[in-house]
Design a binder for these strands. Structure first.
Length: 203
DNA sequence: CATATGATTCCA
DNA sequence: GGAATCATATGA
């Protein structure tokens, strides 16, 4: 009896356009060894024509995983100090992935550890570049489990991709507007009256 | 080989 | 507002 979820997302879940998978991933559970967290924020990156996506550079050393089979982890280092966790989608050669940007702790994460933001959640879960290319369908220590309850889902433009031109405005970010573990407030969720009052974060 | 930069976070 | 910090991509 480990307390870990006993079901996992199958290959078919990941074998779809990243835009579909990104929305479907909100509310699912991310399991790394003995730590579990619920995904509350994601972004879709949709291959070489998406100028915000690493796949825009074509097949390179870094994007080898991104261009690989669906259902594998794509973990990369950003700004020399933070790791970002992604799930490869759609299929080999597509270059689609979903970035996980916020998770709420479920099991094994210290109360004072923040897990909002792509760099913080990998730190909280212990995910590193060593986990790059791990098969989330087969791995014994890194995988995803289905939702246990249906989340509320809002959408907005992606964060930090202003350099990508017009496509930067595409509403390809999905999040649970009731969660305090979303990485930043969204004008749209506030506009819809779906946001909850800010509560002090653990430090 | 040299250089610019980023799907970020933290501090002043 | 600006620094930290380094693998990768790009061009000489």
């Amino acid at each position: 009896m480990t307390g870990l979820p006993d079901e996992r997302l199958p290959r078919a879940f990941y074998t779809r356009d990243a835009l579909v998978v990104a929305r479907a991933l909100v509310g699912t559970l991310l399991v790394h060894r003995h730590r579990v967290a619920r995904i509350v924020e994601t972004e879709a990156y949709r291959g070489p024509k998406d100028l915000a996506c690493h796949a825009r550079a074509g097949m390179t050393k870094r994007t080898r995983t991104l261009y690989g089979p669906a259902g594998h982890a794509y973990v990369f280092l950003i700004y020399g100090m933070y790791e970002c966790f992604n799930v490869v989608c759609f299929g080999e050669g597509k270059g689609h992935a979903v970035l996980v940007r916020g998770v709420e702790p479920v099991l094994g994460i210290p109360d004072d550890e923040r897990s909002d933001g792509p760099g913080r959640l990998t730190r909280a879960l212990g995910i590193t570049r060593n986990d790059n290319a791990v098969d989330l369908v087969e791995s014994e220590y890194l995988w995803l489990a289905p939702r246990t309850k249906r989340p509320r889902i809002a959408a907005s433009a992606r964060v930090g991709v202003a350099y990508a031109g017009e496509i930067a405005d595409a509403p390809w970010r999905f999040f649970d507007p009731t969660s305090r573990y979303v990485s930043r407030p969204s004008a749209r969720s506030i506009g819809l009256g779906l946001s909850v009052p800010a509560r002090p974060r653990p430090r």
